[in-house]
Design a binder for these strands. Structure first.
Lengths: 196, 196
DNA sequence: AATTGCATGTAAGGAGTTACATGATTAA
DNA sequence: TTAATCATGTAACTCCTTACATGCAATT
């Protein structure tokens, strides 16, 4: 009789509710909407989405109607008044703290076991960050232009800027760390120095 | 008969192996070691630790001896040759990509529903980041002094610098975003402007 | 004719946390 | 005497992804 208390509030229902603010959608369309708008910092799989929609309906936070669209049967979901209220109250509450877990740092911490490999990991992390940075900068310009004058534009841009700041900091740190590792001789090099 | 393929390699065993490089330890001591050295970017709970130790022993990567220490019975674990090899090969492989999930950004994205609350969330995220930044700077100085000349020092410092860079970027972004939101009138303010 | 896209779902299982149970020792 | 620390562990969950199954429509 242990561990019954829910550890943390589910977030999936609220992403769904938030996406439905843009208008009714099928589960499939909802997933695409998530990917295209908040995809940079949030993802949902069908395995989460479909059961969550049923649960939301059971609580009266969304409603569905079956539509025949192009011959296909599609369940179209829309948010209810109660759903809007639930979403607003969730946004109001402070976000739950999230502790980071970083596998690259873990490998870096044990780098003495495979120094060359870790240097490669750092280089490819830096390259990935730079590529992502370019992508985000293009996205930012595109969004700024296409959504010009729209009310939600500053919010869009702020979330993209978060990504830009993060990737810039990451790329810089990778370069710094590579330089620091080059200055600090590894245990192998130290052994060579002792022999010389 | 679905979903049998393991999605991603477990990391817990490798953190354990890495921590045992510093010398034999009990499960309890191991957890403290993790908290004190890689705690800034990795955590493990007993619920993970104890079963993982048994699994590692079953694979011959660690060994245990029972010790009576201060009258208490303690299982002391140490890494084997095979364990070292397994750890080195894991460090060698590229880290698995990790997609971020960020609840603060999600709430920011829906900020029109509760603009004042989201401003508070941003302010407290910035304050947390600044506090953490100060903590990390003190930690950095402390580590640099205490571990002076030790071989692993550059690695220690690099992981701390990662945290510093991240928290600095976060704090700056929070301030920028707060300023941007202040410039961009919310839907409530826009309604007031229309009435005026 | 084959591939991609639209569409709804489920089964299996890994990863991870919380909350317990238990009990000895040590310091305030 | 009470609280904190040392010490080992398990049960019950939640969260989440992957890999399937199924089938129609539109495109190449």
């Amino acid at each position: 009789m242990y561990g019954r208390k829910p550890t943390r509030e589910k977030r999936t229902p609220y992403v769904i509710l938030g996406m439905l603010l843009q208008g009714p959608a099928s589960g499939y369309a909802l997933r695409q909407r998530i990917e295209q708008s908040v995809g940079n910092f949030w993802q949902e799989s069908y395995g989460q989405l479909y059961p969550a929609l049923e649960a939301l309906a059971a609580n009266g936070l969304v409603e569905s109607t079956d539509q025949a669209k192009d011959g296909r049967d599609t369940r179209v979901w829309r948010i209810t008044k109660a759903g809007r209220a639930a979403l607003a109250s969730w946004v109001d509450r402070p976000p739950s703290p999230q502790r980071e877990r970083n596998e690259l740092l873990l490998k870096l911490f044990f780098a003495d076991l495979a120094p060359a490999a870790v240097r490669r990991h750092l280089e490819s992390a830096r390259d990935d960050a730079r590529r992502d940075l370019e992508r985000l900068k293009l996205l930012r310009a595109d969004v700024a232009q296409r959504a010009h004058g729209q009310e939600a534009l500053p919010l869009w841009l702020a979330t993209i800027d978060y990504g830009i700041a993060g990737q810039e900091a990451l790329a810089r740190w990778c370069d710094q760390t590579l330089a620091a590792l080059a200055r600090a001789p590894s245990s192998k090099k130290r052994a060579q120095l002792r022999r010389a």
